[in-house]
Design a protein around this nucleic acid. Sequence first.
DNA 1: TGTACATCAGTGAACGCGCGTTCACTGATGTAC
DNA 2: TGTACATCAGTGAACGCGCGTTCACTGATGTAC
Lengths: 225, 225
Amino acid sequence: MAQSDTVSRILDTAEVLFAERGFAETSLRNITSKARVNLAAVNYHFGSKKALIQAVFSRYLDPFTQRFHGALDELEARYADSPIPLEELLETMATTVLAVPAERNSLKVFMRLLGLAYSQAQGHLRRHIQEQYGDVFTRFTGLVRKATPDLPDAERFWRLHFMLGTVIFTLSGLDALRDIASKDYQEQVTVRDLVRRLRPVVVAAMNAPLPQEVEGAQHANAPVS
Amino acid sequence: MAQSDTVSRILDTAEVLFAERGFAETSLRNITSKARVNLAAVNYHFGSKKALIQAVFSRYLDPFTQRFHGALDELEARYADSPIPLEELLETMATTVLAVPAERNSLKVFMRLLGLAYSQAQGHLRRHIQEQYGDVFTRFTGLVRKATPDLPDAERFWRLHFMLGTVIFTLSGLDALRDIASKDYQEQVTVRDLVRRLRPVVVAAMNAPLPQEVEGAQHANAPVS
DNA sequence: TGTACATCAGTGAACGCGCGTTCACTGATGTAC
DNA sequence: TGTACATCAGTGAACGCGCGTTCACTGATGTAC
């Protein structure tokens, strides 16, 4: 095998524990004892706990970004120079995200990790991810821009982040929400089912009417009440 | 004053540090030294770190739920037995949330705390909050139900949580997003501005068309391709 | 009015514990001559 | 083919540190008689 068994045992165990309990709440002793690997092996192979965390992310994000770039290449080729419809872009993103678990543990773990990275207050991790993987997101937002030419830039920026919030919050808190949902309704919801429910909501949100002007904003002949 | 200065000094400092760095990453020594209070005072007044965290939440949530119940009472009285429009319900919730900073530090801190509580993987805290403050949320969703009679129950449940994700994610990550936004566009966005932008998006999301049927779901006379 | 006692907020120092990291070492495998 | 050396994955034990919590204690204020 390309890299030692120990390395992947550590990564496999770490990603699950991180997703379950967070970074600070998961000790190297937790990880190494569960992976049945020597405590010192983490520092031997990765250098530090921080570096281990980044390695866990890379193992998800490297193939993801590569595949996403590929899918966008294909889409651009298919549409030549005419703008790609918003629905196609969103669909492509969803498909690429859903393809993740094919080679890695699970989509749930991936989403929990993303959620943790974003809510990580200090933000070293978020900055690292942004530096390393910001390009593909920039490319995506550029294409969304062409697909929604009537939306002001700032409005598009915020709406994309609103929807990012919806997706990360929902899928990373999936277990908790699923508990509540299955208590109230007898339905057992799957990730694919959630994505199906998300689709029309995201499209409607992106196409929502523009917000009203701010009250008290300067209008040429605004009457004073 | 009703309670000792020490108690409120601890709470004031703790909520800010928790919001900035998370619970595990904030030590009692951080809090007590910044609050210029004896280390042992936390355990003297609150009993444990866990109890301190819950006390921080109660100081936000107690007045919030009380005010929200009051606002809903008023709304129900005004509309007698006819259903309250969705926009009114959302507006009332927004107004009540925005009223929080009037007596507490800031809305940003409140939202970061909520975001942390939800992303807290272990979930003792989320369970505590749900037990203590779930009633007002149940009441609210009941009213939303009357306002959207055409929405299937499960669909309404998920859409409300989609929007909860949008709001918590956006407002709790506000500083980071604000950084990015002000780098790309020269705009300095305020919380009130964000709420203005959120309004049409949330309404459109709640009123989005229903999702397509699941592929391969059983239809009486569905043609087989 | 005076004294003994109780209550209570707050303190300083120490407790044991689990943490991430380091270090000297082992043993297997590969390479040079 | 044989020997000396280098490289490398992995190990066991210890390091110092910061953590939440505990405990005996102080000093001020209130209460009973």
